[in-house]
Simulated scan of single mutants.
Amino acid sequence: MRRNLPIIAIDGPSGAGKSTLGRMIARALGLLYIDTGAMYRAIALAVLRSRAKFTDTAAIAELARRARIELSGDPSSLRVMLDGEDVSDEIHSEQVSHVASLISAIPEVRREMVKQQRELGARGGVLVGRDIGTVVFPDADVKFFLTATPEERAQRRYEEDRARAQDLTFDDVLREINIRDERDSTRADSPLRIADDAVVIDTTELSIDEVFERMMKVIREKRAAGESQSAP
């Protein structure tokens, strides 16, 4: 399928700023925003509701195949629909986050999610996740890998959780960040890694606006280079 709009891939570990910056870039460029982490959270919610055992990977994979996940709305107010129900708020609970981390390591679930993500982004958009530039869209027009120290990422996530009135300590969040990093980096299927042609940005000492400007500069330069190559 020929597309007229670019695909921008933003990968990185939890708390690196992917979602916030993905929304900002999608809004600035008028592109579809696809939060792949929200898709895994929706499947995690379906698993919790079904009471399937976490060891029953076949049942979980079947739930992923049957689930209808839709993303809609402005990037800054993305709504996540699971089988026609708006679950945008419910998928951000600590329990759902934990289960999402577990099921995202199941190869059958990842393959189903990759299939759906490719369908959603086939005509262009900004996709954020952990394997967008390496697996989902290895031919993305622009690839970024955002990172930061575990402590900085944990502080950001801790502040987000406090805003949602979740009762977690900083040490709890840091521990979960480190566990998630290990799980994401060592899983056999679609591990978290930096694409060879990705632009890496360490966001530890940078403000959101500073990172946004760096990313937009890269996008503008890539677009200009592409236009010059296609010119007769």
Rank of each mutant, 00 (worst) to 15 (best):
M1K: 13
R3N: 05
N4F: 14
I7D: 00
I8C: 02
A9P: 00
G12Y: 01
G12A: 12
A16V: 05
S19Y: 01
M24K: 13
A26F: 00
R27L: 09
R27C: 11
L31R: 01
G37P: 03
G37C: 08
Y40D: 03
A42M: 04
A44C: 07
D56G: 08
T57Y: 07
T57A: 08
A61E: 13
A61H: 00
A64D: 04
R68L: 09
L71K: 05
G73K: 07
G73R: 10
S76I: 07
S76K: 12
L78T: 14
R79E: 10
M81E: 12
G84F: 09
E85Y: 10
I91L: 03
H92V: 10
S93L: 07
Q95V: 14
V96G: 02
S97A: 15
S97K: 00
S97Y: 05
H98T: 14
H98A: 15
H98W: 14
V99M: 06
A100T: 08
A100D: 09
I103P: 08
I103S: 05
I103H: 04
I106R: 02
E108C: 03
V109N: 01
M113T: 03
M113Y: 01
V114M: 09
V114T: 09
Q116V: 12
Q116P: 00
Q116E: 13
R118G: 08
L120R: 15
L120S: 07
G125P: 04
G125E: 02
L127C: 03
G129S: 02
G133Q: 06
G133M: 09
T134A: 03
D141A: 10
K143Q: 07
F144L: 09
T147Y: 07
A148S: 12
A148M: 09
E151A: 11
R156M: 06
Y158I: 03
E160T: 06
D161V: 04
A163E: 15
R164S: 10
R164V: 09
Q166D: 01
D167G: 03
L168M: 12
F170G: 02
R175W: 10
E176T: 14
N178L: 15
I179P: 01
R180S: 08
R180H: 08
R180P: 05
D184A: 03
D184N: 05
S185T: 12
A188K: 15
A188Y: 07
A188V: 13
D189I: 11
S190I: 04
P191S: 05
I194L: 11
I194Y: 01
A198I: 11
A198T: 11
D202V: 11
I219G: 00
R220M: 11
E221W: 11
E221Y: 09
R223N: 12
R223H: 13
R223P: 04
E227Q: 14
S230M: 14
A231W: 13
